[in-house]
Design a protein around this nucleic acid. Structure first.
Length: 492
DNA sequence: ATAGGGTTAG
């Protein structure tokens, strides 16, 4: 049966249509309809561009536009959708080309088209250009203000964001939510909360923004509390809400509540997407239930990079080093994903936990390059930790001395750790002097090392030095979930 | 049929 044009339009505009389905519809149109069908229906043409723009291969909408444009005069919607595609592909060149064509054809001053370009500038991080354009726009609607506010908020410039917010003639729920997540991103969770309480109307997205504000700023229990309040308001949770809930469970190490969320997803027959999948895997692994995490992993239909990373890291942090490295090999066989920086943090962590020096060196020096991944601080700290703890102190110190990026405290401390384990007092002294001396832990460690080799005079000297600088040893702190009581208790 | 919220490391 040949589907009607009406059916096709509905499919093209549905957000749940996959990239492949869009391609099938496109092919279907070319095969079974008159080639000049698009001429009779700009609507269909635009919808196809929109569908490609919303898909995972937004560049295909440019291709379609380039091949069909001589047959069909585009309208402002065409450009609106093309700009959506170019902001998704983060190509400033593409965006300005589209803007040029739209201006030539007389659609350049259309508000939606201008907002599209504004959005492109913002997603490319060109805030100055965005502002220049915003200031001279002949007509601005609330979306123009929201775009600008979001841009400032994302870059952490909440002063400018609130300036634009005050200029906005009729801020809506989107405007307010952008302010909430802006303050959250900056770490001002209390201001975020105040703005959230002040806003005249809240929808699911606003609640999600506030929940994620708490999660980001390490207040998982507050996030769980907010979810309870959300349920009282009878606002149906979205998938993003569930992801936020899982992140809160992870942060609170609340395994039972996490299991409850998993059961809820099953009961509602919600198919796990990559966000839900990796959040679930991470939750189980961080709570120590690696087996359950692995069950989720194998059950996932679509495994994207985040899913693989969550599983590899989850195995690594729980000490299943061989299994993590096996999974990494499996990942490299797959044609759908390529490893990134995060993957290698997990790989090197696995090597370092198991003391696999040879394999660690190979990945650090070769595999990373083969995969086109750049080394970041976390890789150095794993590698230095591995080498130093296995007694290759010289090799570890050389890596720190000659690394192309500035080593941070974590890297130095990994080296110090090796010095402590192997009782290399000279190395430890050198390192402690290099580390920014405001962190007391290092002096305590050094004095413990002096004590363990019987150099009591030095122990006394370090202790006095710490006292003079008023450095205090901070007590450790851990948290547990007490059964059937979902509150989390701190324990000293 | 514009604009705001979500996964993996630290």
């Amino acid at each position: 049966m040949v589907p009607s044009v009406r059916t096709l339009l509905r499919l093209l505009r549905s957000p749940s249509t996959t990239t492949n389905q869009v391609k099938q519809i496109h092919a279907h149109l070319l095969l079974f309809h008159h080639p000049s069908l698009f001429q009779s229906s700009l609507n269909l043409f635009n919808s196809l561009i929109f569908a490609y723009a919303s898909s995972r291969q937004p560049h295909l909408s440019f291709l379609l536009f380039a091949t069909q444009t001589s047959l069909l005069p585009p309208n402002h919607l065409t450009f609106q959708f093309l700009l959506k595609a170019s902001s998704k592909s983060k190509s400033l060149l593409q965006s300005s080309q589209i803007h040029c064509i739209s201006t030539k054809l007389g659609f350049g001053s259309h508000v939606f088209v201008q907002n599209g370009l504004l959005h492109c500038y913002v997603t490319c991080g060109r805030l100055k250009d965005a502002r220049r354009m915003f200031d001279v726009m002949p007509e601005r609607d609330v979306a123009s203000f929201n775009c600008m506010i979001h841009g400032y908020a994302e870059s952490g410039d909440m002063d400018s964001a609130s300036c634009v917010f005050r200029l906005a003639p009729s801020p809506n729920v989107v405007t307010w939510t952008a302010m909430v997540s802006g303050y959250a991103r900056k770490g001002d969770v209390h201001i975020a909360r105040r703005v959230f309480e002040e806003m005249p109307h809240r929808d699911v997205v606003s609640w999600n923004a506030m929940m994620s504000a708490y999660v980001q700023n390490r207040h998982p229990v507050a996030a769980l509390g907010l979810f309870r309040r959300m349920q009282l308001e009878n606002l149906g949770p979205s998938l993003t809400t569930i992801v936020g809930l899982l992140l809160a469970c992870t942060g609170a190490r609340a395994l039972d509540q996490g299991k409850w969320v998993h059961a809820y997803l099953n009961k509602k027959r919600i198919l796990l997407n990559s966000y839900l999948g990796s959040a679930l895997i991470d939750m189980y692994c961080k709570c120590g239930a690696v087996e359950l995490g692995f069950q989720v992993f194998t059950g996932l239909v679509e495994k994207n990079l985040g899913v693989w990373n969550a599983m590899i890291n989850g195995l690594a942090i729980n000490g299943y080093s061989e299994r993590a490295l096996e999974l990494f090999d499996e990942m490299r066989m797959s044609t759908t994903v390529l490893p990134d920086e995060v993957t290698f943090v997990g790989v090197l962590l696995a090597c370092s936990h198991a003391g696999f020096v040879e394999e660690g060196r190979r990945h650090f020096h070769c595999t990373v390059k083969e995969c086109g991944v750049r080394l970041v601080l976390e890789h150095y700290s794993c590698m230095v930790d591995l080498l130093a703890r296995c007694g290759f102190l010289k090799e570890a110190e050389d890596i720190v001395r000659y690394m192309p990026i500035q080593p941070d405290d974590v890297v130095w401390r990994a080296l110090l750790g090796g010095g402590l384990v192997h009782k290399d007092v000279e190395l430890a002294e050198r390192v402690v002097l290099e580390i920014d001396a405001h962190c007391s832990g290092d002096y305590v460690l050094l004095s413990n090392l002096y004590a363990s080799v019987g150099r009591w005079n030095e122990v006394e000297r370090v202790r006095r030095f710490m006292k003079d600088k008023r450095i205090e040893k901070t007590p450790g702190c851990s948290s547990v979930e007490i059964e059937s009581d979902s509150r989390v208790h701190l324990k000293r």
